[in-house]
Simulated scan of single mutants.
Amino acid sequence: MPRPRCSRCKRPASHCLCALIPDLPSHTEVLVLQHPDEVDHALNTAHLAVLGLRNATLWVGEVFAALPGWLAQPGYRTCLLFPGEQARSVAAFGSDGDGRPVRLVVPDGTWRKARKLLYLNPALADLPRVTLADAPPSRYRLRKAPMEGSLSTLEAIVAALNLLEAPADYAALLKPFDALIEGQIAAMGEDTFRRNHLP
């Protein structure tokens, strides 16, 4: 029989994270495009990010029919948080402001699945790309990063907002994330964690 789950944070009721999830405003609007394979992942960090941000939305799928209309709405400066040859730093994009609020589109999935989302949604190709230069090291101790500087979706959103919204600080979004990681480590046992996840 499945364990009861919290309907909000999706964690087992005995490990609910809702008390740690903040309620943070932002001028920047965040749209997370989540690959369906991530929805039931035990460490669904994008879901935690959206729960903690008032001005954030999560769309799940592979092809987003509503995306071109959303992108066409006037009054915003929209960018895609994803590396690429022409990508600029988030800070540089933010400092070029002309008074319009920024909308940050964030693909959520493995690198392969995120690239698939970009391929299946050509409207994303027209967006200026931004990346996180000098981002803090990942706190995601349970996953081996495929490349240096890789962050979880939640960590990437926090780092981007800290640059775009300075001096505001979005570190409170990391509290449920840290608790989630600690809970997973406790469940597997310290010895197993050290054997499989420490360098």
Rank of each mutant, 00 (worst) to 15 (best):
M1N: 11
M1G: 13
M1Y: 10
R5K: 12
S7Y: 11
K10Q: 15
R11L: 13
P12R: 08
H15N: 09
C18E: 02
C18N: 06
A19K: 07
S26E: 06
V30H: 01
L33G: 12
Q34K: 10
H35L: 04
L43R: 15
V50D: 02
R54Q: 14
V60W: 03
G61N: 06
G61K: 02
G69D: 15
W70Q: 15
Q73M: 12
P74Q: 07
P74T: 13
G75F: 04
C79K: 00
F82P: 07
A87I: 00
R88N: 08
S89A: 11
S89I: 02
A92N: 09
F93D: 01
G97F: 08
R100Q: 14
P101Q: 04
V102G: 05
R103E: 08
T110M: 08
T110S: 15
W111K: 04
L117F: 02
N121A: 09
L124N: 12
L127D: 15
P128H: 10
A133F: 04
A135R: 01
P136I: 03
R139P: 02
P146R: 02
G149S: 01
L151H: 00
T153M: 03
E155M: 05
I157Y: 06
N162L: 06
A166V: 12
P167F: 11
A168W: 03
A168P: 08
Y170S: 12
A171T: 15
A171W: 10
A172P: 15
I181T: 11
Q184L: 13
I185L: 00
I185T: 01
I185N: 00
A186W: 00
R194Q: 15
H197R: 06
